[in-house]
Every structure is written in C-alpha cells, then in structure tokens.
C-alpha cells in the first residue's frame, strides 16, 4: 500500500512539488515591518515608501527595523530611532506639532470657512434677491426657441 502511494506521488509531479516557503523567516515580524514601512519614506528615492523601495539604503533600514522588531521594540521606539537619525522627513504621516498644526487642522478649517461663507451668503442673498433673472417664463422661451431651432435645422 505504501509503495502504491509512493508511486502515485512520484508520477504526479504536481503533488510532489512542495508548497513554496515564505521569503521571510518570520512572517509575523514581516507583517509588522510592512505595516511600519508603508508609512516611512525612503530617503534616497524620489518619493517612495520604505516598503516599496529597492534602494540599498532602504534595504539596510528594513534590516535595522527587522532587528528592532526581533528585539521586541515597540512601533514607537522604532519610529523614534529613525526620527532621531533622519528627522521628521522619514515620516509620511507628519507628527502633530507647532509647525504642522496648520497642516492637520487646515482642511477642516477650510471646510468650516467654506460652510460658514455658504450659509452667510445664502442668508444675505435671500434678503437681497427680489427678482429672478432667469424666470420660468424665460426658460420656457429658451426651450421654445431651441425646439424651433431643431425643427428648422
């Protein structure tokens, strides 16, 4: 019986061939690396994440991060390690500090200003507009003209 099974296995190469090994020795650590690296900037590249870049420095930095993960350092510690050496430039998510306040609140301030302006304008406008420049009558006339035009053309 064992023989038969062995022969079957030998004949069907597909079954014989094994499942490919993951590239990384430790897939869990690799997942953490990836999670960190997509928010980090490769310094030598034009504009790529540490995860995507194949530059030698990016490879070295990934190696450093892998070692730090192996040493069981927290994400925060790893990021601090990199920021201490390369500055905030490595972070694709800029930290919230005095100089970046405008960056982070800007979009929402913009929205508030826009919304307020819209409401105020609409309110003010409601008092001012007396007549309607494009009246329904005019619209009808336009449509009529257009209809005639289509018949003529």
């Amino acid at each position: 019986m064992t023989w038969v099974m062995l022969i079957v296995l030998l004949l069907s190469g597909q079954v014989w061939a094994g499942e490919a090994r993951p590239l990384a020795d430790d897939p869990v650590a690799e997942a953490r690396l990836k999670h960190l690296a997509v928010e980090l900037r490769c310094l030598v590249c034009q504009n790529q994440t540490l995860a995507d870049s194949n530059a030698p420095l990016a490879e070295d930095l990934r190696r450093e991060v892998r070692e730090m993960i192996a040493k069981d350092m927290s994400d925060k510690e790893i990021i601090e390690f990199l920021v201490a050496r390369y500055g905030d430039f490595v972070l694709y998510r800029p930290p919230l500090k005095a100089t970046t306040t405008l960056l982070w609140v800007g979009p929402f301030v913009l929205l508030m200003i826009g919304a307020t302006a819209l409401i105020i304008t609409l309110r003010r406008r409601a008092h001012k507009v007396v007549d309607v420049p494009v009246t329904d009558e005019e619209h009808r006339r336009v449509e009529q003209l257009l209809a005639e035009g289509s018949k003529r053309s």
């Binding site: 997509v38 928010e39 900037r41 994440t49 500055g87 905030d88 430039f89 490595v90 972070l91 694709y92 998510r93 800029p94 100089t99 970046t100 405008l102 960056l103 800007g106 979009p107 913009l110």
Partner: peptide
C-alpha cells in the same frame, strides 16, 4: 495644502517634513 506644505516649511526654514498617503 498637503502637497505644498513641505515647501512652505522649508521656505520658512522650519524643517523638512514629508506629507504622504497616511
């Protein structure tokens, strides 16, 4: 804002930052 902010900070000599997908 996000695209030009690094330029603004750099022009004001307030450091270099990256503004990316996150």
């Amino acid at each position: 804002l996000g695209t030009l902010y690094p330029l603004f900070l750099d022009a004001l000599d307030l450091g270099k930052i990256s503004v990316g997908p996150p």
